[in-house]
């Protein structure tokens, strides 16, 4: 359920593109620093967005050239904002560990073996992250339990299921002390969480129809064998657009000091672009055929 929140690159300014890279690499570095080398593998776009939201209201942090294990012959610029990354890295570890647990539950014995191994690998980082953000770990556990109950009951409510996930994403901003920052950040992350959940549901729909798995779209609408009917898809598109607008309205209220244009790009351009790709089935295909060298800075 990661990777749906990203900027639309052709519309990014070069400095915003560099800032995004530096934030991504900074998260990777912060994960390694706090939770060990293995946690570097958990870095993802969605959590980079979370960092950008939190960092946007803070004074600009130093960017340094840091060692990158993926490209050890060349240092890469990283944002070194330990205070900003603390909560984000804890949330990343907790969410990824819960995702592993979820995959173990959903997989058969043989396919689940890999996830069981991953669970062993990430158990210690998860324990440490749970100590760092205990209230977030409890909330994630409670909301995922509520979500699995809704799934077991085959709930046709898009909102109730999306709410469970959106509340988790929104809780990543619960610790912000200033209400003028916390409320818009929570509202923004809530709508982004909804967007992620609904995109993921649409992305998985064909597979769930084949495997007879739970998908809220399957019970809310009347899908054909390949996916949703055109009018249902149009309605879902309007729901997604409205979520984007509410997220944008929340972003306007965030007292940003930096990364404003980057965040606007992600919300107004990146989210709709990813939804369009998911809708047309190009999202997964693009991920595989992504040209590896072309986009390097």
């Amino acid at each position: 359920m990661f990777g749906y929140v990203r900027p639309l690159q052709p519309e990014l300014r070069v400095r915003d593109y560099d800032a995004y890279h530096a934030a991504y690499c900074g998260l990777c570095r912060a994960l390694a620093k706090r939770y060990g080398f293995r946690s570097r593998f958990l870095v993802n776009y969605d959590m980079t967005f979370l960092f950008l939201v939190r960092a946007s209201v803070r004074p600009a942090a130093r960017t340094r050239n840091c060692f990158c294990p993926a490209r050890f012959w060349r240092k890469k610029p990283c944002i070194c904002d330990d205070g900003g990354y603390d909560r984000v890295s804890a949330c990343t570890v907790i969410l990824c560990y819960c995702k592993i647990l979820d995959n173990i539950r959903d997989s058969g014995f043989w396919k689940g073996l890999g996830y069981r191994l991953l669970k062993l690998v990430y158990h210690r980082p998860w324990k440490k992250a749970s100590k760092d953000a205990p209230e977030f770990a409890d909330l994630v556990r409670a909301k995922l339990l509520a979500l699995s109950e809704l799934e077991a009951a085959q709930s046709p409510s898009l909102d109730a299921t999306a709410d469970a996930f959106a509340a988790i994403v929104s809780a990543c901003a619960d610790d912000l002390p200033d209400e003028a920052v916390r409320r818009p950040a929570q509202a923004l992350l809530y709508q982004v969480g909804r967007h992620i959940y609904l995109c993921d549901a649409l992305d998985d729909l064909a597979e769930d129809l084949r495997a007879d798995g739970y998908n809220p779209l399957r019970y809310r609408f009347v899908p054909t064998q390949t996916g949703l009917q055109a009018e249902d898809l149009a309605y879902l598109g309007r729901l997604m657009d409205s979520s984007v607008n509410l997220a944008g309205a929340a972003l306007s209220l965030l007292p940003v000091r930096q990364y404003g244009a980057l965040l606007e790009n992600i919300v107004y351009l990146g989210l709709p672009a990813v939804y369009t790709a998911v809708k047309t089935g190009r999202f997964r295909a693009k991920a595989k055929e992504f040209p590896r060298k072309e986009n390097q800075p």
Binding site: R6, P7, L8, Q9, P10, E11, L12, Y17, Y20, H21, Y24, C25, V43, N44, Y45, T48, A70, R71, K76, L269, G270, P272, A273, V274, T276, A277, R282, F283, K286, A287, E289, F290, P291, R292, K293, E294, N295, Q296, P297
Partner: peptide, 18 residues
């Protein structure tokens, strides 16, 4: 701008892929 501009449209960061 919601339609993808070119083949590298949505993939913002090349670092993960590498």
């Amino acid at each position: 701008k919601r339609s993808f501009a070119g083949k590298t449209g949505w993939a913002a960061c090349g670092c993960l892929s590498e």
